[in-house]
Design a protein around this nucleic acid. Structure first.
Lengths: 143, 143
DNA sequence: CTCATATCAGCTTAACTGAAATTG
DNA sequence: CCAATTTCAGTTGAGCTGATATGA
C-alpha cells in the first residue's frame, strides 16, 4: 500500500497534469497535421455533433464566442469547415465538417491509439474502459 | 445501457474536453487569485516536490525549458518562489516555494472541492476515488 | 427593449524555435 | 568536444475584455 499519494493533488490539478502530458505526446505524434490540438478538438466536436453554431461550440468548450471565432478562422480558411445560412434565423450560421475536415479527423483518429498506448501502457483493457467512461460522464454535461 | 457513446471520442480528446471545462470552472472560482491556472500548476508541482530545478519542472510538464523560464518569471517576481545556488553544480538553481507561495497553494486547495463538486456532482465517492487514482497513475509516470 | 449571435480590435499568456553563456 | 542548464530574443496560438452590428 503506497502512502495515499492519490490525495496529494486536487482533481483540477490532476486533470491539468494529465492533459499537459497527453497534449505533449499527441502533438509529437501528430506534428505533421496542419492543425493544432485545440483546432483538432473543435473539428472533433463538430464531427460528433454533425452540425453546430459557433455559439454552441463555445458553450461546449466553456470559452467565449470571441475566442471561438479566432479558432475558427484558420479552419474555415483551410477549407475544413463548411458554413451555411440558417433559413429561419438570419443571424445563425450552422457549421459542419467539409469532406477534407472529415478526412483529417479520421486520420487523427487512426493515430490516437498509439498515444493512448504510450500513456496507458500499464492499464488493463478494463481500467482503460472505466477511465474513459468516467471522463465521458464529465464531458457529457457540456454536450 | 446507452449506445456505447464512450467510444465516440479518443482518449486524448476526452482529456482535452474535461480539462477545458475544468479549467473554465476553476478559473471562475479562483478569479481573484494573482496567478493563472498554469502558473498555479507550477506552484503545486513544486510544493509536491519540495525542491526542483526549472529543467525538472519542464520535464514533468512536457514543455520546453524555455517555456518554463517564461512561466517562472512572474512567480519569482511575485515572490512566490525562492531560488538557491546548488553547491556542487554551479549551473543548477534549485527552486522551492516561498512562504507566500505555500500560503497561496493552500488557499487554492481550499477552493478545489467546490470545483470538483460542481463537475462530479453525480459521481459517488467511490467513483471519484477511482477516477483520481487512475489519473494519478498516468501523471506519476512523469514525476 | 432585450437577448443571442457573430465578428472586429487590442491585449495577455503560454507555447514554440533559435541562439548564447556557463558548467561538468 | 559534448551534454545539461539557464536565459534572451522573436514568433505564434489561444485565451480574455470591450465594442459593434444584426436579427428574433
Amino acid at each position: 500500500m503506497t502512502k495515499a499519494s492519490d490525495d496529494d493533488l486536487s482533481f483540477p490539478q490532476l486533470i491539468k497534469w494529465v492533459e499537459m502530458v497527453t497534449r505533449g505526446e499527441a502533438e509529437r505524434t501528430m506534428a505533421d497535421l496542419p492543425v493544432s490540438s485545440t483546432q483538432m478538438f473543435v473539428l472533433v466536436l463538430l464531427g460528433q455533433r454533425g452540425e453546430a453554431t459557433a455559439a454552441d461550440l463555445a458553450r461546449m468548450m466553456r470559452i467565449t464566442p470571441q475566442a471561438l471565432t479566432t479558432l475558427l478562422a484558420p479552419l474555415r480558411q483551410g477549407g475544413l469547415i463548411a458554413r451555411r445560412q440558417d433559413e429561419d434565423h438570419g443571424r445563425r450560421h450552422p457549421l459542419r465538417l467539409s469532406g477534407a475536415g472529415e478526412q483529417l479527423v479520421a486520420h487523427a483518429r487512426q493515430l490516437s491509439p498509439g498515444v493512448e498506448q504510450r500513456l496507458l501502457e500499464d492499464f488493463t483493457p478494463s481500467e482503460r474502459k472505466v477511465l474513459k467512461s468516467l471522463l465521458w460522464r464529465i464531458a457529457k454535461q457540456f454536450r
